[in-house]
Structures are given as structure tokens and as C-alpha cells.
Design a protein around this nucleic acid. Structure first.
Lengths: 307, 307
DNA sequence: GCAAGTGGTGCATTTTTTGCACCGGTTTTG
DNA sequence: CAAAACCGGTGCAAAAAATGCACCACTTGC
């Protein structure tokens, strides 16, 4: 949540209270969080349900819980709030202020080089725009989109999900990263069988790189993915290479070989390992805030320009 | 507007007042329409602008008018209200009520046979769903969509417009309609040159049929579109055929030849006259109410099934 | 220059919302 | 099994917010 101020906007007040009750799980708990008496809050909720025409909470002995109608309402509340924020950003935009906020859920690989560079370039032209960037796996990224917690997702993901509108897609072959002295370093393209015979590190099962490697290795006999080191953090794995000579696997968009003179990066043969799909997307049918829409457009052209 | 009741919903109260002021053109006039004092209304407006952070009205000596920020807000208001209506329809849908409202802006040709049949079939399964159907030309139809006054548009329109999301498109050749005894009646396909040599009626300039005819006739020499009778109403033109022997031009979707035994309908040669495009669409990016979305889906399959 | 518009404001009044003290209920706890 | 700890809901008086009324300053049209 990036509410800079405790913005009021009376017409959203009820919605705030409702969200508070949902978070707290009971009206009394919520009332403590929100500087209001339980009785007053209770009456607001009841009055809202009255006007709305349907109950939105199940009353349980230990508190309240959303019923299906409430789930729909919650989605409406989030959508409505994000829409209102977009409206404000549009208005401030036309009075020349050029402010806004862009929130991104992305794969880890984008964090070290690609996104910092893109965001810095964008902010050089729009210094009033703020960003929030968070690493999320494929599932969490989609959930964030549908909860309006993120505007844009940029993830490696072989599946296309419901409610995920693909704005741009590109395939990237997995690269093997090793020291320049490594026996395989002089080959322009690495066979998977060769790579796996050397000591290697690999990301954990939930990350796309590992899934693609496993899928490919299953077609081979006598070799398998057997990492000496396994981690969820590409950052950790990259640094580990400074201490022990190992092959690691990564998408090239997460690398910047110019600044790593001791290391070389070579693509795995695409006939061995299917390339990963980098998917840029948003919540289906949603109209993004101006700043996010513009940044998205820039991202698309940056992705097109990638090697 | 199909507000069955003067629904309250406190969080939309300000929006209602704002819309009232926009309609009336001045705060005082609006206050009379809406059972409130000018001073109270004035304060609501001012307070809203305060909380919103931007003025939305220009104060003129003779009243108020929306500024650009206000235009954006107005669009948000309409979108927000329609969204809330959709939410309610979804909620009532899941409690088994099966209510809803579908509003359609369409070309005249759809009014006599096609839409009545489709709507009747739909309502036979969903008797709680109400419809509003209005004939609109291409421009008005798009405006209605963007003002959330209609959910669905079904218009003959050779151009694709901004904010108009085409859900289904189909081409229909123009048909020439004449009495069974007409000299051209035994030809399976009519040449435009032949048709125009006989006395004919034609729709007025703003209708798609006329535009297509004129465009085609311009390529010919020595014949032109010179209707004896010109009208905006296909209904009138069809009935006129009972009194005087003339060729009229119409899209087949607007005809039902089974019930007109004296008349025959023959397609104009497509090499003479470009077919008209029947476009089914909605406002770009909008999520339709359940009832409208379902009816839209039915419309698509009905259009696919057309000869 | 005057009448008829307009938006805006101070103040008393009305309406709405809130806080407090409870009630009746279920679950947890000793 | 009873007491304690929750829970949502309610009557009533106090506090807060919205409203109506009378009026101001201003512009426009005659």
C-alpha cells in the first residue's frame, strides 16, 4: 500500500472500514485499529449492508467473515480505489505535475540490472514518479495483480494464467555461467549433458530456471540435475561463484557480463533446454494509471531491443 | 437511465449532486432540482473539491462548467456507477435471483426481427432480465458506450472507432428488395447498374446503406443513386413497397422474407457494392454486467449462425 | 442604475454519527 | 460445570456534521 497520507475522501470511508473489518476478522478488533467504537463501526457495517441490499459478512461466534457477496464487494472496493488513484494521477498530470506511482511484481532475475536501468532511465524524464518493486514468483505475481497491489508483472512463466493479460512476451534461452578458465568456457553453446557433468549450482524447485532444467534433464539418461548448492536467491548463487568453481544457470536478462570480467556466460543449446518465456503483463481489462501505462510502454520497447 | 428506485448508497451521494450540477449548469438551478438548499449544495461541492485536491468546476458569472479535471471525474463517476450496478447484479445472481438489465444501442436494421427474436429467446431462460433497446447511428452508439448509457452496441459501421472494442464482426452484402413481379426478381444476384435504372427508395445520407451505395455508384457512369423516396426509417420504406413498385435496399438481417410472400430479396453483386460490416462491440476495457455479458455471448453465436 | 442572476458565508437549527453502558449469545478456560 | 472472555447488537444521551435561512459581493442585461 502506498498511501502517502491518510487520505480521507468521504465516499471511500465505508470501504476503508469494511476492509479494516476484513483484515481484523472481527468488528471489535477492527474498531481498536481504526479509532472508532465497536458500536459505531458495527452500525456502519449494518447500515452499509442495509443500503447495499445484501449481507456481506457471515456472523460467526468468534467474529465475522466475508460471504461470497462480500468477496465480490471486496474486489469492487480494490478496483474502485485503484481507479480513483488513477483518476487523481490523470488530473495531476494535466495540471503539469507529472506525478504518479508504479508498482511492479517481477522475477528475481530482473532485480539486479534490467529493472534498475529501466527505472532510472524513466525517472530521468519523470522525476516525480515513484516506484515499488518486489520479487514475486509466478503465483504471487498474479495474485498481486488481481488484488490491485501491483500494476505490472514481469515474470518468467511458461504458463499463461487467467486474468493475466500478456502485453509482451519474449523467449530467453537459459545461460550457463562459469569462470573464464572453465573447461567449457570456450564453447559458443553448451550442451546440457556436458554442463551437468560438472559441479553446478541451481535455483530451487519453485523457480522457472529449475523447472526448465529438470524438464530437459528428464529426457537424458545418466545425467541429472544434482546441484552442489541450491538456493532461492540468484544473488547468492552469483556471489558463490567467486569462492568455488561451479556452473550456475541464469537468464541473460539477469546478467551484466561487462562488469564480471572473470566470468563468462554461454547459452545452453536450445535443442536441449527449452527457453524460458519472459511475460510482461497486467490484470486483464484493467486501465492502468498514466505513469504505469507509460512505463509499461517503455518496458515493451526495452524488451524488444534486448539481444 | 434505468434506476428502478431512487437508490441511495451514501458513498455515491456526492457524485449524484455533482452530476446534477453538471446537468443544471449552475448550483442554484441544480439545488432546486434536487431538494436541497443552494448553500448546502454549494458547500458539498466545495468540500468535495477540497478533499479531491483539485477544482472540478470553472466558476463563471452565469453558473459553473466542468474544467478538464472535472471531465475526467465525470467519466470516473459514470464508470464507477456502472461498475457498482454490475457488482449488484453479480451479487443478486449468486443468490439465485437472476436479475439484471441489458441496454443496447443498435442500427435500425436490427430492430424489426433480429433483436426481438434474440431477446425473446434470452428472456425465455432469464425472465428477470430487463432490456432497453434504442436505435442509434454509428456516432451516437459510440458516445452512449463511452457514457455508460449502453452496455452493448450492434451497428453497421465500416469504420472502427476509438474506445470501441469489436467483439464480433460480420460482413453482410446489401440486398435489393422488390415485388415478386419485378423484372429483376428472377436474377439470383443484382447488378447495381441495373437496380439504379429502376425507380428506387433509399435511406438518407447518414445511414450506412446509403454511404455504401453512393461509394459504389461513384465508380459507375451514367447511373446514380436518385431515390424517389428518401427516409431515415427502414420501417417506412418497407411499408411503402406495398403501395408503389420500387426497389429498396436493406441488409438481410433486417428482413424476414418468410413473412412477406409478395416480396423478394436479392443480394447486390459484391463486386459492385462492398458489403456492410455489422460490428458488435462494447466500451474498450469495460467489464460488462453479468446479464449483458451473457447476452453478448448469445448474440455472437446467433450472428455466427446467420446465413 | 437597477433587477435578476450567480457563487460564497455566518449562524442557528436539524440531522446524523458516535461513545458509553449494557444485553444475550458462544467459546474458551480453570 | 461455572466463570471468564470474547463476540455482535441496542437504547440513549452527547458530539459532530449537514442543512436552511438571511445576507454579501459580484457580473450581466436592460
Amino acid at each position: 500500500m502506498h498511501h502517502l497520507l491518510g487520505e480521507d475522501m468521504r465516499h471511500l470511508k465505508d470501504f476503508e472500514f469494511i476492509e479494516g473489518v476484513i483484515r481484523a476478522g472481527s468488528i471489535r478488533k477492527a474498531s481498536e485499529d481504526m479509532n472508532i467504537t465497536a458500536s459505531a463501526l458495527n452500525r456502519r457495517i449494518n447500515r452499509f449492508e442495509d443500503e447495499f441490499g445484501y449481507e456481506i459478512f457471515e456472523r460467526l461466534p468468534r467474529g465475522v467473515r466475508l460471504n461470497p457477496a462480500g468477496e465480490l464487494l471486496l474486489h469492487h472496493i480494490r478496483s474502485q480505489r485503484s481507479d480513483f488513484a488513477r483518476l487523481k494521477s490523470q488530473v495531476s498530470d494535466l495540471s503539469g505535475v507529472r506525478r504518479g506511482h508504479v508498482s511492479i511484481a517481477c522475477s528475481q532475475a530482473l532485480l539486479p540490472y534490467f529493472l534498475p536501468r529501466q527505472i532510472a532511465r524513466y525517472r530521468s524524464g519523470h522525476s516525480g514518479v515513484t516506484f515499488s518493486v518486489n520479487a514475486r514468483d509466478r503465483v504471487a505475481a498474479e495474485r498481486e495483480l488481481s488484488e490491485f497491489a501491483s500494476d505490472i508483472a514481469l515474470v518468467f512463466e511458461p504458463l499463461t494464467m487467467v486474468d493475466f493479460e500478456v502485453v509482451h512476451a519474449m523467449a530467453q534461452p537459459i545461460h550457463a555461467v562459469m569462470r573464464a578458465e572453465h573447461p567449457l568456457a570456450d564453447q559458443p553453446e553448451i550442451r546440457l549433458r556436458d554442463a551437468l557433468r560438472f559441479p553446478h549450482v541451481a535455483p530451487s524447485e519453485k523457480l522457472a530456471v529449475r523447472v526448465l532444467l529438470e524438464t530437459a534433464a528428464r529426457r537424458l539418461t545418466s545425467v541429472e540435475v544434482a546441484p552442489m548448492i541450491e538456493s532461492e536467491s540468484f544473488d547468492f548463487m552469483r556471489h558463490y561463484g567467486a569462492w568455488e568453481d561451479m556452473i550456475s544457470f541464469q537468464f541473460p536478462v539477469g546478467l551484466d557480463m561487462d562488469h564480471q570480467p572473470n566470468l563468462v556466460s554461454r547459452p545452453l543449446a536450445v535443442r536441449d533446454v527449452a527457453p524460458g518465456n519472459l511475460l510482461l503483463g497486467q490484470l486483464r481489462g484493467r486501465t492502468l494509471p498514466v505513469a504505469s501505462a507509460r512505463f509499461m510502454r517503455d518496458l515493451v520497447s526495452a524488451l524488444r531491443a534486448l539481444p
